[in-house]
Design a binder for these strands. Structure first.
Lengths: 261, 261
DNA sequence: GATGCATACTCGTATAGACGAGTGGGCGAG
DNA sequence: CTCGCCCACTCGTCTATACGAGTATGCATC
């Protein structure tokens, strides 16, 4: 094993850059250069204290910076590790196209299995409720809505949490109100019920997760979420569904194809 | 002014939740309930130390949590403030449609002025260079590319940093290689040169910014970036441009419209 | 060999103190 | 009145120490 000095260098006492930033810089550079690779354990706090001749809080400050940047994750009792880049799931913009509506299985399941992953869906909850102001406005101000909540996991890891909202007058006493709406999902049911889908609007934001989202998606620190709100419109121009999705940003890349005309 | 106790409550000494998390919870709840509004100054570290009867590091730990969540920003010498939500810019998926190609001004400028903001573009750099592996692959492995870099600001605040790459054989000695490519931008020039644009592919990721990106976009801590890579294809199916854009996530919402068929 | 404990290592939490540096207000000198 | 300095308050950085809690390993015991 190379000495820490050859990997991390030393502090520049003449620099006006804060010591903990210099330490973070050294570690970041070492990671960038591949001296530490994904999943590798970084030197322990004690080792860094000894190497740089600073106090432990200073080292922790530096490591905390790297975690905020999403470069490292700490594991209690084990150490601090270079954050592994999980395989990303690519969401194509045509994933809800009619031609892709698979018989029998949900789009998520089909896609995941094709990619060699083990998909799961849990936290299934279907209930009637009063819509939030935002959801209400998007759906044309229904008094009540049907909410379908679920969480998606890949190989045991939560990656996405979604809620679909439908006007209650449209969804009550239909297969859509069942825990399992049947092959092709709720979009297939909507079309069977005469609501031929015309187009979807999607709005995409990125932000840091709330504490509740950190729990639900088991997010490491330094991982943002992608917040996607999709509204489905039928051929009459009525908004028939709003799907509010929060995704672990390190698990997804969204892909859209746009015409140039 | 209401007492701090009525706004923040007190610690629960029987709880096994870490003290700094309880303090963060109290502040977060007060912010959520509107007791502190956007831009408001939170109690100073000293006030929180006195109120909760803990050490300063514990309070700083709590405040640091809120900053990581993007809820607060600290200003040296002034205090810690509830992070103001800047107005978001909505990017519609048809913003590059041919019909929107404005004569004379860049899309960014037109749109910003319509929204009542003062747009600026700086850091203009146009140079020839060897493409990165990723860019090269997307453009069909050209030996060299023309790179056009610029930064966009709204009302003096940097919001976006973008680089366009074009195969050099296509762009050399054309208006595209000029600092100002003329009305309608490089897409108009490409079409004039016989590359009728057919469609765009866009890939969207969200992640925490690198230190360099924090500087360029003057990002507060707790603000992720949206990384958008757009590839433009002409009617022959050739990739004629790749635009790599890094946006301050708190300044943007991306909107796409998708057909359902 | 399997079990279980002791131990040494890891990071997590918290205290107490010190000094530095940016901000803004007040006050006195000119 | 204006300028400039001082001071009080803010957060930023750093040290030193202590104990708690999770993890892994090895060794003694059964």
């Amino acid at each position: 094993m190379a000495s820490l000095t050859s990997v991390l260098g030393v502090l520049d006492p003449t620099s006006d850059r804060a010591v903990f930033r210099q330490i973070a810089d050294a570690l970041r550079e070492a990671i960038d250069k591949g001296r530490f690779r994904e999943g590798d354990k970084l030197p322990s706090e004690t080792e860094l204290v000894d190497h740089f001749g600073v106090s432990r809080m200073t080292v922790r400050n530096a490591l905390s910076l790297l975690q905020q940047e999403g470069l490292a994750v700490s594991e209690h009792g084990k150490g601090v590790f270079v954050r592994p880049r999980p395989p990303v799931r690519r969401l194509a913009s045509d994933r809800f196209a009619r031609r892709h509506r698979d018989q029998g299985k949900a789009a998520f399941t089909v896609e995941a299995e094709a990619a060699g992953s083990r998909p799961e869906v849990d936290n299934l909850e279907v209930k009637e409720e009063r819509p939030s102001q935002d959801i209400s406005a998007r759906l044309g101000s229904p008094r009540k809505v049907l909410a379908r909540r679920r969480r998606y996991l890949l190989d045991g890891r939560p990656v996405e949490f979604a809620t679909s909202y439908l006007p209650l007058d449209l969804a009550r006493n239909t297969p859509i109100a069942q825990p399992n709406p049947g092959p092709g999902g709720i979009y297939a049911r909507l079309e069977e019920m005469g609501h031929r889908l015309d187009h979807f609007d999607e709005e995409i934001r990125a932000r840091m997760p709330s504490p509740a989202e950190v729990r639900t998606l088991q997010l490491a620190s330094g991982v943002p979420v992608i917040h996607l709100v999709r509204t489905a419109y039928d051929a009459e121009g009525r908004a028939v569904e709003v799907c509010d999705t929060v995704m672990a940003a390190d698990a997804y890349v969204l892909a859209y194809q746009l015409p140039a005309n």
